[in-house]
């Protein structure tokens, strides 16, 4: 009997998710032992037409990382959906847009201008990318950018979500273990739509710092103060997102002394992560005078980055208004 088939793909992402998968060390051998890896651009050579030639539903497990930024991303998302039994939105980009999703604050022409003309760019001829170009050999194409980045599940049906930027290696290992056990008939798959490879409370649950009733008189940035290593960071005025972020990472950042920035996404049952966090922070600001409240809020230097760093594309907002404005690319 042939081994079940495994695929992994990257759309609009940084590649960190791929590294995280390789970072599971010897467990990668389990993947090889139990699966036939049929498509994984970062690790092996394969052509899209090979995938297109496969039978529908013939791939058992596909880990799809990255958001949907262009028509190529969307094409492959549809293709892999058709060919896969289990499609996992793998990592923050596929689940909720992540850092590439922050581009949803800007229209495409601005993004392209920034990429091709700012001072750090060496582009003396002022070249701009063209979606099609006539070569002596014929016309060639590059993918067309969409006005906004979308999450995987806004394009295709997704079976499971695996959050994290990137997902923690031990969580990936655990998921691989689970699928192997399911194959061996020793375990059952969670219900469709579930979040896997994460906890179902918040980072605070795994954070060892002491927590008290919170009253915030001042927000500060972590590099500007000596934080108490034992005490909850948020109580000290460091805008730690752990209170709203799904557990599963073992509270790595707060344990190391840095605030949680929210890469594991919203906790179970939370519809809009940023809105939740805004509401929570606002609730514990210890002031009644509007001017004083404004002063305290000024301590949050980058509200969009603070509250929507990972989930703008997946939020109820989806994007800033400007992103939808007509762009000239």
């Amino acid at each position: 009997m042939s081994k079940p088939k495994f695929a992994m793909y990257w759309a609009a992402s940084c590649g960190g998710c791929e590294i995280a998968v390789l970072n599971i060390h010897e467990k990668i051998l389990d993947v090889d032992a139990n699966f036939d890896v049929v498509f994984w651009p970062v690790a092996m050579d394969a052509k899209y037409k090979d995938v297109e030639a496969m039978e529908d539903g013939s791939i058992l497990l596909t880990l799809f990382n990255g958001g949907i930024r262009n028509d190529e991303n969307e094409h492959i998302a549809h293709l892999l959906r058709k060919k896969s039994k289990i499609l996992v939105a793998f990592g923050s980009c596929a689940c909720e847009g992540c850092i590439p999703g922050l581009a949803n604050f800007s229209p495409i022409n601005e993004i392209v201008e920034t990429a091709f003309s700012t001072i750090s760019t060496d582009n003396p001829q002022g070249i701009r990318p063209q979606t099609s170009y006539q070569m002596p050999e014929g016309e060639i194409h590059i993918p067309t950018l969409y006005p906004v980045l979308r999450t995987l599940d806004s394009v295709v049906d997704v079976d499971y979500y695996m959050p994290g930027c990137p997902p923690e290696s031990h969580q990936i290992g655990a998921v691989i273990d689970l699928v192997v056990q399911v194959l061996q008939g020793k375990a059952e798959l969670p219900p469709k739509g579930a979040t896997i490879g994460a906890g179902n409370s918040t980072v605070c649950d795994e954070c060892k710092r002491t927590r008290n009733v919170k009253t915030i008189k001042e927000f500060s940035r972590i590099q500007l103060m000596h934080a108490d290593p034992e005490l909850c960071l948020l109580e000290q005025g460091i805008p730690c997102n752990g209170v709203a972020t799904r557990s599963g990472c073992d509270a790595r950042c707060p344990t190391a002394g840095a605030q949680c920035i929210g890469c594991y996404g919203p906790a179970e049952g939370v519809i809009d992560y940023g809105a939740r966090l805004v509401s929570a922070f606002a609730s514990v600001i210890d002031a009644n005078d509007p001017a004083e409240i404004d002063r305290i809020l000024d301590g949050l230097v980058d509200p969009a980055g603070q509250f929507y760093r990972f989930n703008l594309a997946g939020s109820l907002l989806k994007a800033g208004k400007s992103a939808f404005q007509r762009s000239n690319v």
């Binding site: 927590r211 009733v213 919170k214 557990s247 906790a267």
Partner: peptide, 28 residues
């Protein structure tokens, strides 16, 4: 409070105008 979703961050503790929220130190 849905207990399994609560991690005892204590954001809510001081907010209740009716002092109805209690923090259970043992269960966090």
């Amino acid at each position: 409070v849905i207990e399994e979703h609560c991690s005892g961050c204590r954001i809510c503790n001081d907010l209740c105008p009716f002092s109805a929220i209690l923090y259970l130190e043992d269960k966090k």
